[in-house]
Nucleic acid binder design. Structure first.
Length: 775
DNA sequence: GAGTTTGAAACT
DNA sequence: CAGTTTCAAACTC
């Protein structure tokens, strides 16, 4: 699909070299040397951190952390080994290798330049939030350029433009960015980790810019056809040092197209966990070659769909965790499934989904985004429940996995020895391992779920090796909320762990040793069976695997809800039906999920301490000054949010799903936001999910107005000001929703705008270089 | 650890 | 949609 583009790209590249851009690069090179050592690191970190943040702007923190983790690992291993020098050697840029960065420029000069320029501009102009916006926009353009074959040339033009503009700016700025981008692209995330940690945390705004840059750099890396060769070499060099060795090694070894390799690398670096998992899962069945092919396919997919790429990145940030979890199940199921109609949602979101799914799966193969998308949709987030809150953890885990599976692996037994299937499991493992290694970061709470789920996914073998099991168990115990569900272990005796009775199955995770189930079929070995069963269940109830509890933040943070707000704002998807427990015991799913009962509940004698069905707030938890807010919530929330939820859950259960990984991924756009800022996150997620699901579920429900509205807004959403929130507003709660998001502050509004932009991404294609050229 | 209670999931 | 059965978690002892 995309291959032709690459060829085109190559030409453009050559042109670029000749073009002013090239000159510009040459100019940059001198600058870099000055900053090279010290600056590069910082910038790199910034750049690295920023890219994710950009997409996830709202989530910035989380994403940053995740990347940070990832990169951090990478840094340790990769950086030292793969120095800029190596890169230079590999790339042997046409121009003087004054700095490592330069080489990169040569390979991907135009792109990088553009990125830096843009990023720098934006960064200088606008703080973090703005950076995010900028980053979003730019990245898209870059992505498109990269992704779309035709675009590349255009990109070059754009780049040239940007370069031209840049010149005016101080070389220092440019130099910074380029370096970071280069390193990102070349060394990949290696450098980021270390640098990012400090800088990211310290400098929020910069991060945004950096993110943009990094993304752009990534794109650039992909795009440059010439680079691929050098890249291969680089990969080889890096392999030893980098944790990504598996993928990288595969890439270099494989004769795959350069462009593809680049993508694969980027994906890896960026944390295309899906790919890994998918590969692992697939690899289990197929040989190494098969894996390679898969990788290629994935890459091809990415390349083919520029939009997707963008989505992917976004998705990565936000959804990584989810994807991974879902990987096994979803991957297979999704691919097999064909829920086209569902995907009608924004192309961007679809793309992202596709990317996630597609990458992971060979099934989807390069073919198209369309298919892959479809595939994605079908899969309902297995771990959605946990995911909503776990997003952060996910990110972290994912990043970790991506960045340093192997590095982390040490704790786990030799991963290299493991079979393909095992490898994919291992991929999962790292996350868990990481936790062990870095408990502080992940923290038991949300992250645990992810890890556990991941562990489950990883499979029995893995768990056995890791001591995590015990830990997981403990963690599960610790986790009171439904979020911990994914981590739970089952004790099924008759259901074979293939029914929702099984917590593991319901959570979308494989049973693991800790489970005391009998005749368990919920294991990697029985993937087919599991997938089929899942499909059946989903066919009956699309929301079956969706999170049961919708967190307030998820559902309707808008109101002013503080993130701290008690669960009252959250609601159970379908509501409970308790009769004897008075909703005061874990028998009650609402109570278990730490949320108050809602209108949708049919419970009797409800005494839910988190919030009663009638809206009254029990003394305990929620009774606070905020209670009013809650009361309001209950009053209003119930009316509005609950209605929304109810609609989502009941009418459009899918909407309720927001947390579901797939959905999220689908909604891609929102994810970024959702990732970190809780309020935005939940909000976003809900929206996105709703939108996504709406498409899925359209057939079923009367499709409440809200849903369609959401979708439309998302898709059509213009841009800046019409933030996602606005979209959401369409929902019954609309006002609140809109206001909160918008109100959230400049950042939120911007975010919303950004989000919208992202969502609107589909339009980006138009933005592609061509447009620029025309200009 | 065994038994009971409970309510969701599954079935009709 | 409602009623019943099945199931496994939550709970109690």
């Amino acid at each position: 699909m995309d291959t032709p583009d690459r060829s085109k790209i190559n030409n453009p590249l050559s042109q670029f070299e000749d073009s002013p851009v090239f000159n510009y690069i040459s100019n940059l090179s001198p600058i870099e040397p000055v900053k090279s050592v010290h600056i590069t690191q910082t910038f790199n970190s910034l750049s690295f951190s920023s890219p994710p943040s950009v997409f996830t702007s709202p989530h910035v923190n989380c994403h940053r952390e995740s990347r940070f983790l990832r990169r951090h690992n990478l840094l340790d291993a990769s950086k030292p080994k793969v120095s800029s020098e190596d890169i230079n050697n590999v790339y042997s840029c046409e121009k003087t290798p004054a700095d490592s960065t330069q080489p990169c420029h040569e390979s991907s000069e135009p792109q990088e330049n553009t990125n830096p320029n843009i990023s720098t501009r934006d960064a200088s102009i606008e703080p973090c939030n703005e950076n995010l916006n900028i980053s979003i926009e730019l990245p898209q353009g870059l992505k498109y350029n990269l992704a779309s074959p035709g675009y590349d040339p255009v990109l070059s033009a754009d780049e040239a433009d940007s370069l031209l503009e840049l010149p005016g700016k101080p070389g220092s700025d440019v130099a910074y960015i380029p370096e970071g981008s280069e390193k990102d692209s070349i060394e990949g995330e290696m450098h980021r980790p270390g640098l990012c940690h400090n800088e990211e945390k310290i400098e929020g705004p910069d991060c945004g810019v950096d993110d943009l840059i990094t993304e752009a750099s990534e794109l650039l890396m992909f795009s440059p056809p010439n680079v691929t060769d050098s890249f291969k070499d680089i990969n080889k060099q890096l392999n030893p040092s980098t944790q990504l060795t598996n993928y990288r090694t595969l890439l270099p070894q494989s004769d795959i197209n350069d462009g593809q390799q680049m993508h694969s690398v980027n994906a890896i670096a960026s944390g295309s966990e899906h790919e890994i998992e998918n590969h692992s899962s697939e690899s289990a069945a197929a040989t190494d070659t098969g894996q390679r092919q898969d990788n290629h396919d994935n890459v091809a997919l990415v390349a083919s769909n520029p939009n997707e790429k963008m989505d992917d990145k976004l998705v990565y940030v936000t959804h990584r965790g989810i994807r991974r979890r879902c990987l096994d199940f979803e991957m297979a199921s999704v691919q097999r499934k064909s829920i086209d109609g569902k995907l009608n949602t924004n192309s961007s979101t679809k793309k992202s989904d596709e990317m996630n799914v597609g990458k992971g799966k060979q099934l989807l193969p390069t073919k198209h985004s369309g298919d892959s998308r479809k595939c994605v949709l079908p899969g309902i987030g297995l771990h959605l429940n946990a995911l909503a809150t776990l997003n952060d953890c996910k990110n972290i885990k994912i990043e970790k996995l991506l960045s340093g599976r192997q590095p982390n692996m040490p704790s786990s037994s030799s991963s290299s020895q493991l079979s393909a299937s095992q490898e994919h499991q291992l991929s999962l493992l790292p996350a868990s391992v990481e936790k062990d290694l870095e408990p502080s970061e992940n923290e038991v709470q949300p992250g645990e779920d992810c890890t556990e789920s991941l562990v489950h996914m990883a499979g029995e073998d893995f768990q056995q090796n890791s001591p995590k099991k015990k830990r997981q168990v403990q963690l599960r115990k610790l986790e009171p909320d439904g979020e911990g569900e994914s981590c739970k272990r089952c004790n099924c005796k008759k259901s074979k762990c293939l029914k929702l009775y099984c917590e593991c199955f319901a959570a979308g995770v494989y049973c693991i040793e800790p489970c005391s189930c009998r005749d368990c079929f919920n294991k990697p070995i029985h993937v087919d069976t599991v997938l089929q069963t899942r499909q059946q269940i989903e066919s009956r109830n699309p929301l079956a695997f969706a999170p049961k509890v919708i967190r307030s933040s998820d559902s309707v943070p808008e109101i002013g809800d503080d993130p701290n707000k008690t669960p009252a704002s959250a609601r159970h998807k379908r509501g409970c039906n308790c009769k004897k427990s008075s909703c005061l015991k874990k028998y009650c799913e609402c109570y278990q999920g730490g949320v108050g009962c809602s209108i949708s509940c049919r419970c009797e004698g409800c005494k839910n301490t988190y919030g009663r069905k009638d809206g009254s707030v029990p003394s305990g938890i929620e009774a606070k000054p905020e209670e009013e807010t809650e009361v309001c919530e209950k009053g209003v929330m119930e009316n509005a949010s609950q209605k929304i939820e109810a609609h989502n859950t009941e009418d459009h259960p899918e909407h309720a799903l927001p947390t579901t990984p797939l959905r999220i991924s689908r909604s891609l756009l929102p994810l970024p936001f959702s990732s970190k800022g809780k309020p935005p996150r939940s909000f976003v997620t809900t929206i996105s999910s709703s939108g996504l699901f709406v498409s899925q579920k359209l057939g079923k429900s009367s499709a409440p107005r809200s849903q369609p509205k959401f979708e439309k807004p998302l898709q059509t959403v213009p841009d800046d000001d019409s933030p996602v929130t606005c979209i959401k507003t369409s929902s019954p709660n609309g006002k609140r929703i809109s206001s909160p998001n918008c109100d959230v502050g400049s950042s939120p509004t911007r975010r919303g705008g950004r989000k919208l932009i992202l969502q609107s991404i589909p339009s980006f294609p138009s933005l592609t270089p061509h447009n620029l050229r025309s200009d």
